[in-house]
Amino acid sequence: MTLLALVLAGCRSHPNAAGIAAANDTSAKHYPVRGKVVSTDAARGEVTLDSAAIPGFMEAMTMPYRLADRSILSELHPGDSITATLLVSDKGDFLDQIVITAQAKPDYKPSFFYHPLKPGDDVPDFKLLNQSAKTIHLGEFKGKVLLMTFIYTRCPLADFCPRMSRNFAQLDKMLAADPALYKKTHLLSVSFDPDYDTPKVLRSYGEAYTGKYTKENFAHWDFAAPNKKDLAPLLRFFDVGATPEKDRTITHSLSTIVIGPDGKVYKWYPTNDWTPDQIFNDVKQLLGGNKKA
C-alpha cells in the first residue's frame, strides 16, 4: 500500500501550499474516489485517471490530476488502481489520502494485495475484543445478518467514521422498530486502532452513539478491535487501508459489509455514500421480507 497526495489539475499555481490549506479546512467537503491510472506526464507533473462516478459530485470521467509532489510520478504506473478522498473547499479541489490498492507494473509489486470483496465470499472467522473485554468472533453471528463497518474513535472527519456510526445508530433504531428483523440481525463496528481503542474507550464511544449511555447492554451492536497480530489480515480481507500519521490520526479508507446468515458477503459498500435505508432493504431482501422499492 502506498499513500500519495494528488492535486486536481488547474486548481492552483502552488498546489503543495493550497493542498495543505484545503486538508486543514474543516469546512471542506469529502468525496470518496476510486480509479485507475491511465497515463502520467512528467513535464506537467500530472497523472490522468479513469475514475468511477464520485457520488454527489460528478459522473465517471477520465481526466488529468496535478501531483502535489512531482517526485511521486515514479510511483504511479498505467493500470494502477487507487482509492482517494476528494477535498472540495474554497482553497481548491484536491485528491488526498490516496491508497494504491493494486500495482500493474511487474517490477513494482506490493508486499500484499487487498482482497476484492465479492458477493458470495466466505468471511473468515476473525477474532476481536469487544467493549466488554470479551473475545468475540465473526463465526458466532452465523444464522443472523451481520452488518459490519470500520471506524476508529478519534477520527476527526465528520463524513468518515462519525458518519458510519451515525448511520449504524439510525439502522439500529430502524431494526428495533421491527422485532422480527431485530432478532435476526447484529451490528458490529470494528476499530483499526487497537492501541487506543481499548474496551473501555469502545464502551464509552458505543454508549454515546446508541444514545443509551450507561444503560446500553450492547446486545444488538458490538464495538470491537482485533489484536495487533490479526489487524493486517483483517484489513486486507475487508479492503480497508489504514496508515497511522505523525499527528496520531489515521489515514484510512472505508468499508461496510452486509454478511448473510450463511457467513458469506452479500453486499459491500466501499465508500461513505450508502444510506441506512439501503442497508435496511438489504436486510429485508436477505431475510425474505419486503423487496427493495
Rank of each mutant, 00 (worst) to 15 (best):
L4W: 00
A5R: 12
L8C: 12
A9I: 01
G10Q: 04
C11M: 15
N24K: 01
N24S: 03
K29F: 02
K29E: 12
K29W: 01
Y31H: 14
R34Y: 13
R34S: 15
G35P: 06
G35N: 07
G35T: 08
K36M: 15
V37Y: 08
D41K: 02
A42R: 12
A42S: 12
A43I: 07
E46H: 15
E46K: 06
V47D: 09
T48I: 06
L49F: 13
P55F: 03
P55T: 11
G56I: 02
G56R: 07
F57T: 01
M58V: 12
E59M: 11
P64N: 08
P64D: 01
P64V: 02
A68Q: 13
R70V: 14
E75M: 12
L76E: 05
P78A: 03
P78W: 09
D80W: 04
T83P: 02
T85I: 14
G92E: 00
F94C: 00
D96T: 10
V99Q: 14
T101W: 04
D107P: 05
Y108L: 14
K109W: 10
S111N: 13
F113G: 11
F113K: 14
Y114S: 03
L117C: 06
L117R: 02
P119Q: 07
P119L: 03
D121Q: 04
P124H: 06
K127Y: 11
K127D: 09
N130G: 06
K134Q: 15
T135P: 08
T135L: 13
I136H: 04
I136C: 05
F141M: 10
L147F: 10
M148P: 08
T153E: 07
P156K: 11
A158I: 14
D159G: 08
C161W: 05
P162V: 04
R163Q: 13
Q170P: 00
Q170N: 11
M174F: 06
M174L: 13
F192G: 07
D193M: 06
Y196G: 08
P199M: 10
V201D: 07
V201S: 04
L202T: 05
Y205F: 12
G206F: 05
G206A: 07
T210Y: 06
G211K: 08
K212F: 11
T214V: 15
K215N: 13
N217M: 11
F218Q: 06
W221M: 10
A224P: 08
A224T: 04
P226K: 05
K228L: 14
L234V: 09
R236C: 04
G241L: 00
A242F: 01
K246W: 08
R248C: 09
T251Q: 09
H252V: 03
H252P: 10
S255E: 06
P261W: 06
D262F: 05
D262K: 08
D262E: 12
G263C: 10
K264D: 03
V265E: 08
Y266R: 11
Y266C: 02
Y269C: 01
N272I: 12
N272F: 01
T275W: 01
P276T: 07
D277I: 11
D277N: 12
I279Y: 05
F280I: 04
F280K: 11
N281Q: 14
N281R: 13
D282P: 01
Q285L: 15
Q285P: 03
K292L: 15
A293M: 13
A293P: 15
